[in-house]
């Protein structure tokens, strides 16, 4: 690491700050991978490939932002993939039924928030463990979309405007609507998390629910709203992916929950709660998408993708653990 040294103390502080950053380990790997790929593969650093990668990471970014909010509140949402499939189905089917696009989208968003609220209520009011409640919701959501479509992909809902929403048609140069939406949502969420009372309460609930309750925070309400935010973002992802893929197979959401969790965890969110940032979620989504892109460019068969996603998940947790361990040891050595 080369850092401009202003003074001994401040450089130490900066070094520690960077090393202790929860996504430092994965960030180094990411930069290394980009440098190596730029030299090895001429088609990697082209403008077209870069826009490809950014477009492909949008869906996971939405889900990862929602997942990060839930993880900060000390929960875990396994149902995001199937919520995304259900809301994509709602958007597509309702347009086919002849509703205007805005009404269909509003229904999809409402259903997403509704599923999130049900998750939150099951967890807080009935005391069901987070991952069991959302695992059950995953099964229910998948069953609903399969039953509704009878296993047949939904077709014929695409219109001119939907190509823009899916990011297939760009509005200016390489910039598409999903990119703007992701940036706006992450900026807004960052402000909410860092500057608002709700954000502070979210971190408090995740760090220690009992002390948060003692401090007068309504723990249940905060947790339910975290799940509602996750459901809302899953619905946005559903509307987006319906436009990107132009058909909705009923199993469209399969495996997205692990991508979302992996992205959030890579970005420094902890399953123990109380940690996580929006920029981390985006870095995580970028890591996953880039891995996939590199696999394709190098010429590894696409059937290896699941293996790599699983390995990246475990590897990222290990890398982040190792980097924080390392910096803690360094810190301790510096003190004594």
């Amino acid at each position: 690491m080369t850092i401009n040294i202003a003074g001994r103390n401040s450089s130490k502080y900066l070094q520690n700050r960077i090393l202790q950053d929860p996504s430092f380990g994965i960030f180094v790997l990411l930069v290394l991978a980009i440098i190596v790929m730029t030299f090895l593969e001429p088609s990697f650093a082209t403008g077209r490939n870069v826009t490809n990668v950014i477009n492909a990471m949008m869906t996971v970014s939405f889900l990862a932002i929602g997942m990060t909010v839930v993880l900060i509140a000390g929960g875990l949402d396994l149902s995001v993939g199937s919520t995304m499939a259900v809301t994509a189905g709602v958007a597509g089917k309702f347009i086919i039924y002849g509703m205007p696009m805005s009404v269909a989208f509003l229904c999809a968003l409402t259903i997403g928030v509704g599923i999130g609220c049900i998750n939150g209520l099951l967890i807080t009011k009935l005391g069901i463990p987070d991952f069991i409640a959302t695992l059950a919701m995953l099964g229910i959501g998948q069953g609903v979309i399969l039953l509704w479509t009878q296993g047949v992909p939904i077709l014929g809902y695409m219109s001119g405007a939907y190509y823009y929403i899916g990011g297939l048609n760009k509005i200016a140069g390489p910039i598409s609507i999903p990119m703007i939406v992701v940036v706006v949502i992450s900026v807004v969420m960052t402000i909410i998390l860092k500057r608002s009372k709700f954000g502070l309460q979210l971190y408090a609930v995740g760090s220690s629910p009992i002390s948060a309750r003692n401090a007068g925070v309504n723990v249940d309400a905060i947790k339910i709203s975290a799940y509602a935010i996750s459901g809302l973002l899953a619905a946005i992802a559903g509307i987006h992916i319906a436009g990107r893929t132009t058909t909705i197979p009923p199993l469209i959401g399969n495996g997205y929950e692990i991508s979302a969790i992996a992205a959030a965890v890579i970005g420094g969110a902890s399953l123990l709660g109380g940690k996580g940032r929006m920029i981390g979620a985006l870095i995580g989504a970028l890591t996953l998408t880039l891995t996939r892109n590199i696999i394709n460019l190098v010429g590894i068969k696409s059937s290896w993708q699941a293996i790599l996603t699983g390995s990246v998940l475990i590897g990222a947790v290990l890398a982040n653990r190792a980097s924080s361990e390392f910096s803690r040891k360094r810190f301790r050595r510096g003190k004594t």
Partner: peptide, 15 residues
């Protein structure tokens, strides 16, 4: 196809 929904509900009721 309804069986997945039933399984999910059974988990919730069971807990």
């Amino acid at each position: 196809l309804i069986f997945q929904i039933v399984t999910g509900l059974c988990i919730l009721v069971g807990v």
